[in-house]
Amino acid sequence: MQLELFPLANKVALVTNGFGPVGEEICRRLAGAGANVWLHGQVEEGCELSDTMAAEWTALGVHLSPVRGTAADRQTIAQLVATILEQCGKIDLLVNNCQAGQRRSFHQLTPADWLTTMQLNLDRPFLFCQQVLPAMLGAGGGTIVHVSSTAALTGQISPDFAASQSAVQSLTKGLWHEFHGKGIQVIGLAPEAKEAGAEQSGQLAKAIGEMVLLLGTGYGVYLNGEILTVHGGIPNG
C-alpha cells in the first residue's frame, strides 16, 4: 500500500484551541497533507500573533481565527463555522483540542477557576460539535476527534483539569453512540498528562499530530468510539 503524497487534498479541517504545541502540530500535519485547515484558538487579551507565526501559517495555507475573551462564545463559534461552510462548503474533520489547564491543588482551586476550565474543555467542544454535526450529517459523514488526556484516569495536573478530561471522554462516547450509524466517526485521543521535558512534549505533540493525520485520511475509519491512550509506552503507576 502506498500513501498518497497529499492524502488530505480537498479535505476541510477545523482545529480548536489550536495555539499551543499540540494544536499547532496537528495543524502542520493536516496542512502538510493538503487539507484546508482552519485554526480557532484563544489569544490572551493584549497579545498579538507574531508576524513570523502568522506568515508561517499563511505559507502553509492555514486560516487563522484567533479569538479573545470568552472562548466558549456561542456566537463567535457559530459565525466561524458558518464562514467555513460558506467558503468551503463542508467540514470533513473537527479536532477539538480540550487540553486547557494548569497545575494546582484542590485547595488552590477556586469556583471561578473551575468554571473557566469547564468552559474551555467541555462547553467549547460541545458548542463546536453542535454547530458542525448538521453539516457533516448533511454531507453523509465526517470525523470528530477529541484530544483529552490520561488525567481523566489518573487525576493528574489539577482536579478541574482531570474532571474536564473525563467529562469530554464521556461526551465522546455519547456522540459515538448517537451518530456512529450515520457516517460519523468520533474518536478520543488521550496523551500522557505528566509534565515532561521540552523534548518529550514535542514528541507527544508530534504523536498526536500523526494520529490525527491518520484519522483524517480515513485509514483509521474502523476505529470508532474509542479513547486511544498515547503515552509512548511509558505506563502509569
Binding site: G155, F161, A162, A163, V168, K173
Partner: peptide, 17 residues
C-alpha cells in the same frame, strides 16, 4: 450526551482527590 458528560466529570475529579 449532556448527562453522560456531566456524570463523566466525576470520574476525573475523584481520581484527582
Amino acid at each position: 450526551v449532556h448527562y453522560a458528560a456531566s456524570k463523566g466529570g466525576a470520574f476525573g475529579l475523584l481520581r484527582a482527590l
